[in-house]
Every structure is written in structure tokens, then in C-alpha cells.
Design a binder for these strands. Structure first.
Lengths: 215, 215
DNA sequence: CAAAAAACTAAACAAACGTTTGATTTTTTC
DNA sequence: GAAAAAATCAAACGTTTGTTTAGTTTTTTG
């Protein structure tokens, strides 16, 4: 049993490198993480990075492409489903918060990558991926508007608010601790806080989107 | 006239270095900007950075401390003024959007710095500065709640939404171009877009915060 | 179980890094 | 206008960077 575990571990040295790299890139940024630093943290020889990934840059690209979230199918399913528009938005909010919270290290990386003008091909990759999802969400909002369920809000900037609120929460760990008056720890990404976050997001967007049909 | 301009320019080589550094740090990140790169872009000798700032790190700290926004006085003035709570929030939104848009290069830097766990003293400096402002804004929201003008929303996360929406707009230039369906340029930070942004933010937060007092 | 392939390693590579030096030019001071 | 101070420069400093090499160990294959 134990032997097999160790055996598997050795086989997956490549995967292990990717995981350690993700953590370090998220914590310190791509440029600040040296191959030696990464190799030491992952407990492998320096040359193994070039051996498996050719170069540091290609390691990064591999990480980016392999972990890029595949949310489009889920979003399209929600859009196509036969439920009120607000329930669709509610599902979208749940999904995005869960995805971002669980994979927050990766999302820190891609959001930092977006804010830099260093590697245009990365920016394009991330932006394209986001643009497709954005289009679907805009579809949900416009559908709600046409069906008389949603107000005629600024759909694009509403999405920017949803996305922006979540990504700021993920990016600024220290800030979130201060905001929620919790002691400084990753606990701000725990279940309780996540539910609180969902409640807030739904409350805000509901007030923003829903028409007051009552007299 | 022209001679004096050149003369002033030469005198302010230190200031010029700071400005170029701000632009480069915002575009490429601290680690990716080398002294040689910075010196070439600013058209000064490599040794001048050490001459004026001792080290690259102290240049960064100098930039951070000298440009850290001083918004507290403005916020406290708004809080103390004798106007409806919503008008206070409206002023806060205007001020933050203007400040962030005008100094977006600097804000890109400090937000990236917050998301990294590289230089804890920087994180502390930025977080402290933010925490003070946040407290004042929370004061405005709680005042509105006590006066029966605002709903009992989650004040902390409402601030996170406001801050998060703006900072995402600043950070993700490419994303904003896609969202607003504009051609890729810094024009998304022009006057028209800024007004659109303010309208959206006020519309959303108003729906979120304001009680429907009408029957 | 020997040969081939894959995995792994220590050591070395050139290039780029932040910083310093020591000399030269420019500016300020009296 | 000479002496002192400040500003500027090219060149070199020792490290660290990402990457490669050449050899060894381990695993797979027939």
C-alpha cells in the first residue's frame, strides 16, 4: 500500500511540479519564482523542469492551458434550462463563487496575468475564454429583460461587478480579513464565509436586476 | 522659455525616474522591470537609480509612499456633511472612480502588490491605508441604516463589491474592452466610459441600499 | 537477464541581474 | 574664478538567472 503510494508519487513528479508551481506562482508571481526555488520546494532536481517542460515559460503555459476552467458547458446548460431568469443568475453566481474559491490560487495567477502587459498571448487566451462565458451570461440578462423579469440595467458592467467582486475577494486575502474582521488566515475562504459571500452577491444583484412587480 | 524647460527637466531626473518606474511597474510588474530597462526607458545612466534611491527596492518603496492616495480627509468630510446618506455614498463613488481612473497605473501596482505575498510590509502599508477608508464608508452605510434610509445589507461585502468592481475595471484593460465592445485601447478609461461606469455603480448600489419607502 | 529507454543527477554554461567603483563633467558656493 | 559639492558616466563587481551537458541510475522491453 505505502509502497504503491510512493511509487505513484514518483511517477507523477511532473504533475507534482505543476502543482507546486501553481502555488508558488500564485504566492509570489511568475518572475519571482526561480527554477531553483521551485525545484527545491518540489524536492526534485533543477534539470527536471527543463526535462519535463522544456522551459520555465512552457511550464507556465502548460499550467495555464491545463487548468483553464471549462465553465462554458455549465453556463450554456443553465441558459438553456426552463427556469426563471433570476434562478439562472443565481445558479451562475453559485457556480462562479465555488469555482473561484476552490481554485483561488490559479485564479490569482490568471488575474495577475491579465493585469500585466508582459505576455500578450496569455492575455489573449484568458480574455477569449472569459469573453465566451461573458456572452452567455449577457444572454441570460437580456433574456430576463425581454421576458419582463429584469430591469434594463447595463448588462456588461453588471457582469463586471459580479466578476470584479469575486476576483477582488480572491486576490486580496489580507483585505478580506480586514473587511470581514476575521483573524488573518485562509479561513476567509471557508464554507461559512463562502455562504455569506453568496448571500451578499445574490442580494445585491437581485435588487439590481429584479423588477418590482408588486403594487 | 525652452531652455528653462530643459533645465527643469534635468533637475527633475529623480522625479522622471519615479514616473517612468511607475509606468513600467504597472505594465510589467516589479520583478520584470530591470534597472537597465528602466534606465534606458528614462534615458538616464544605470547608476543613477542607486545614486538617487540607493536600491531598486527603495525606489519602489519611495514610489509607494509618495503616491499613496490621501483620501481619508475627503471621506471624513463627506461623512460629516449634512446630506442624505445616499448622497454621501454617491459622492464616495464619484471620488473613488475618479481617483482610480486617473491614477490607474499606480493602483494596478498596489493591487498587484496586495495579491502577492512577497513583501509583507507593503501589504501592511496598503491594507492599513485601505482599512481606515473602509471604516469611514462603513460608517456612512450604518448611519443610513440607523436613519431608516438604507436596508440592512452586508456593509463589509457591499464595500468589497464597490471596491472590487472598480479595481477589476482598472486591472483588466483587455477585459473591459471586450465587455464594453470597444476597440482595444486606453479609451475605455476616457470620460464617456467613466460616466457610464459611475451611472452603473450608482444604479446598482442604489437598488441594493435604498429602501423602497413608496407604497 | 541483457539491451534499450526513460528518469534522474551534479556540475557547468552564458546571460542578465542589482549594485559599486573611480573618474569625469557640471553646478553651486564664497 | 578657483574650490567644493553634486551629478553623471562607463566599466566592472559578484550573484543569480534559465538552461544544457554528460554521465549515472532506474525502469521497461523483448
Amino acid at each position: 500500500m505505502q509502497e504503491q503510494a510512493i511509487h505513484t508519487e514518483k511517477q507523477d513528479k511532473r504533475q507534482h511540479l505543476l502543482e507546486v508551481a501553481e502555488r508558488l506562482f500564485a504566492e509570489q508571481g511568475y518572475e519571482a519564482v526561480s527554477i531553483r526555488h521551485l525545484a527545491k520546494e518540489a524536492d526534485v532536481n533543477i534539470a527536471m523542469v527543463s526535462y519535463y517542460f522544456e522551459s520555465k515559460e512552457k511550464l507556465f503555459r502548460t499550467l495555464l492551458e491545463s487548468k483553464m476552467p471549462k465553465t462554458r458547458a455549465v453556463l450554456e446548460e443553465v441558459l438553456a434550462s426552463d427556469i426563471p431568469s433570476w434562478e439562472k443568475m443565481s445558479k451562475v453566481i453559485d457556480m462562479y463563487i465555488d469555482k473561484f474559491f476552490v481554485n483561488r490560487a490559479f485564479h490569482r495567477i490568471i488575474m495577475r496575468e491579465m493585469s500585466l502587459q508582459q505576455r500578450p498571448e496569455h492575455v489573449q487566451l484568458i480574455a477569449d475564454n472569459f469573453a465566451r462565458n461573458m456572452k452567455i451570461i449577457r444572454g441570460i440578462i437580456e433574456e430576463g429583460q425581454e421576458k419582463g423579469q429584469f430591469r434594463y440595467v447595463d448588462a456588461e458592467l453588471t457582469i463586471a461587478s459580479m466578476f470584479g467582486t469575486i476576483s477582488t475577494a480572491i486576490n486580496n486575502h489580507k483585505l478580506m480579513c480586514m473587511l470581514t474582521q476575521q483573524p488573518d488566515s485562509e479561513l476567509v475562504y471557508g464554507d461559512d464565509y463562502r455562504e455569506r459571500f453568496k448571500r451578499h452577491m445574490k442580494s445585491m444583484l437581485q435588487a439590481h436586476l429584479l423588477l418590482n412587480t408588486g403594487g
